[in-house]
């Protein structure tokens, strides 16, 4: 039964993964990517790795892909430009790609990576895997965890450095200053002698 479910989700995963790169519409490609994330989350669940499955769905499907879809929809991507030269590069690309594929299939196959070569991880422990992950993450891997935090900080600094324009270039309104304005700042009442009608 578990095998059947595995092959089902693995099949969907491969199908969705292929569609991501073959489909023409970028929005559809993003949706297929969501589908592939879902099916890989299901495979994590089969391995009883609930935490990883949840994170994959929450973080990738819930946050990253939604953001990604926004970007795809906001950009007007010209597909004809992207496809330029496809026919010219295809033979070389296909040759190199298939060579690598064949070489990899010879090694990454049941010969060396079969089920009998690797033991299924022991899942009978009493500690839920979220707890187990949390324990090593904040103790054994504390150093790596902190570097990851620094990487996120760098990403933030970089994003701000590359996108923020100084205020002078932006034409924006400051409501507070607008409200504070009094008639004296804007209007000047001049006294003039009335002109006599002729």
């Amino acid at each position: 039964m578990i095998k059947l479910i595995f092959y089902l989700f693995a099949g969907i995963l491969i199908f969705a993964g292929t569609r991501v790169i073959t489909v023409k519409n970028p929005v559809h490609a993003a949706m297929f990517l969501v589908l592939s994330f879902f099916s890989s989350a299901a495979i994590w669940l089969l391995l009883e790795a609930e935490f990883l499955a949840m994170t994959l769905v929450l973080v990738y499907v819930g946050a990253v892909m939604v953001l990604f879809l926004f970007v795809v929809m906001m950009l007007d991507i010209n597909l004809t430009v992207l496809r330029e030269g496809f026919a010219r590069y295809f033979p070389v690309g296909a040759l190199v790609g298939s060579l690598i594929l064949i070489e990899m299939l010879l090694l990454v196959g049941p010969n060396y990576f079969g089920l009998d070569k690797f033991q299924v991880p022991d899942t009978a422990s009493t500690v839920p895997n979220t707890v187990a992950l949390g324990r090593v993450l904040y103790t054994e891997y504390l150093y790596a965890f902190e570097i990851a935090a620094v990487i996120l900080l760098v990403a933030m600094v970089a994003a701000i450095a590359l996108t923020m324009r100084s205020k002078r270039q932006n034409k924006y309104q400051d409501p507070a200053r607008q409200v504070e304005v009094s008639a004296h700042d804007r209007l000047k009442v001049l006294k003039m002698p009335a002109e006599k009608a002729q």
Binding site: I147, V150, I151, V154, A155, V157, A158, A161, L162
Partner: peptide, 10 residues
Amino acid sequence: LELLSLSLYA
């Protein structure tokens, strides 16, 4: 490596 590379890209 990623910390170095990300800073360099930026």
